[in-house]
């Protein structure tokens, strides 16, 4: 399943870059993130709680950042398992200067397993898009030094 899109985040590419690969920012901004442990350089273990309809539940996973081209692009890979199945995602995130903001484009290939498979095409894509959008919004707020909203859809 292909899953791609882009978001505009206020801040110059170097600022946005630093935020995107910072485990503390990832922990704070990933919707529903309960905990993030750094297990190696650019290698994290996450526990995330998703509260959306049929995929509700706690998901445990591993996330890695690789092939970094500082300020421009990196490869993100993640795999996780929750009550209704497994999911692995691998893809490229690219940053592009856009004046005061940075255009962050992502292109992921997701593989789902377990009961999730049946949901994948219909339900998961919009959910993944929603969560990704939330993630970038939160990153933007962190960069601006604003408070993060406590609860959002999906967390």
């Amino acid at each position: 399943m292909k899953f791609e899109g882009e978001s505009e985040v206020s801040g110059t590419p170097p600022v946005v870059w630093d935020a995107l690969i910072d485990p503390k920012v990832i922990e704070r901004c990933t919707p529903g993130c309960q905990s993030l442990a750094v297990v190696g350089p650019d290698d994290f273990e996450l526990v995330t709680k998703i509260g959306i309809a049929s995929i509700s539940g706690t998901y445990k996973g591993r996330m890695r950042i690789a092939e970094k081209l500082v300020g421009e692009r990196y490869v993100m890979s993640a795999e996780g398992a929750g009550p209704i199945g497994t999911m692995s995602v691998v893809g490229i995130v690219t940053l592009q200067d856009n004046g005061d903001a940075t255009r962050v484009a992502y292109s992921f290939e997701a593989t789902v397993g377990g009961a999730m498979t049946g949901l994948a095409q219909r339900a998961l894509l919009p959910i993944a898009k929603l969560l990704t959008k939330q993630f970038f919004k939160r990153v933007e707020k962190v960069i601006a030094g604003e408070d993060l909203p406590a609860e959002e859809v999906g967390s």
Partner: peptide, 14 residues
């Protein structure tokens, strides 16, 4: 079923 053995249609809308 796909080649990984994943069953894609597990509800009556699919």
């Amino acid at each position: 079923y796909d080649e990984r053995g994943q069953l894609w249609n597990t509800d009556l809308t699919s």
